[in-house]
């Protein structure tokens, strides 16, 4: 890791707490996927959650996004305790996410896919939509302009009318990021944004993640397996293993944590 990025990260001003997770425990039947974990996500930071397979990272992300409701513990978002929410209400709270296995709408064009990211902002009534008159058309054009900004930003202008099903994997990942960004979220959750990519695609994606964080000021929480990427991108890292939190701090702190090294290199668990 070069020293310049070290300095850049050290210089960054982190804001107040955006989300706080207190003593979260999540069970599926008899299995404890998450055991009494607490950590926070601060405004404007890139927060990584790492850990070996089956550590409970994706479950954690699902708790943050409100898809799973933990049996114990509290989720505080923007200074308020968040009760149980319906999955479709989460977008309105300002949380958007991408998925580990791409979850795009294959039958729709890239443009339509990204437009769906703004669905929760569309207010035109049924009649206006049916007659394509007044609010519906105006709303469509306004939101299209917003979406085009994101298309420019992620450099996917040339494929905007292509059906998503025809795109290669790397571009699909980018379209999915675009869809999440279109929602203009405060908190963006990325579930393995670089899984299955080659080096060049990873570099592109890393640049986009940093740019999103930089230009839009979006807070990002991400899960990633590529340690090089995680250490370069993130401001702070949570390490999980077997549902427990075994490390939390800056990339350097985490890297030198004995428990983390054990989890990754493997020692006998008793």
């Amino acid at each position: 890791m070069n020293t310049q990025t070290d300095i850049a990260i050290a210089d960054r001003q982190l804001g107040g707490t955006l989300m706080e997770l207190r003593n979260i425990t999540l069970r599926f039947g008899g299995v404890e996927a998450i055991k009494n974990i607490s950590f926070d996500i601060r405004e404007g930071e890139i927060r990584a959650i790492i850990g070996p397979n089956g550590a409970g990272k994706s479950s954690m992300l699902n708790v943050i996004s409100g898809f799973y409701v933990p049996q114990e513990g509290e989720v505080w978002f923007r200074g308020e305790r968040r009760g149980p929410v319906k999955p479709y209400e989460v977008a309105r709270l300002g949380i958007a996410r991408t998925f580990q296995n791409i979850a795009l709408f294959d039958g729709m064009s890239v443009l339509d896919n990204i437009m769906t990211g703004r669905l929760h902002r569309m207010k035109a009534g049924f009649l206006s939509q049916a007659l394509w008159w007044g609010p519906a058309e105006r709303e469509e054009i306004e939101n299209r302009a917003q979406v085009e900004r994101i298309i420019d930003f992620l450099e996917i202008q040339n494929i905007r009318k292509t059906p998503v099903g025809r795109l290669p994997y790397g571009l699909k990942k980018r379209v999915e990021l675009a869809r999440a960004l279109a929602a203009e979220p405060q908190l963006l959750l990325l579930d393995e944004p670089m899984a299955g990519m080659n080096v060049e695609e990873k570099e592109d994606m890393s640049r986009f993640v940093l740019d999103v964080n930089d230009e839009f000021g979006t807070t990002i929480a991400l899960i990633e397996h590529d340690m090089g990427v995680v250490m370069d991108l993130s401001d702070r890292v949570v390490v999980m293993d077997y549902g427990r939190k075994i490390g939390d701090g800056s990339p350097d702190e985490v890297r030198n944590n004995q428990e983390v090294i054990d989890a990754y290199l493997g020692v006998a668990h008793d």
Binding site: S65, F67, P87, Y88, E89, V90, A91, R92, A96, R97, F99, A103, L104, F105, D106, G107, M108, D112, T116, G117, L119, H120, R179, A183
Partner: peptide, 14 residues
């Protein structure tokens, strides 16, 4: 169409 293509993702999107 979002519900048709992938209902879980549609729900997360709002």
């Amino acid at each position: 169409m979002a519900i048709r293509d992938m209902d879980i993702a549609a729900e997360i999107i709002g």
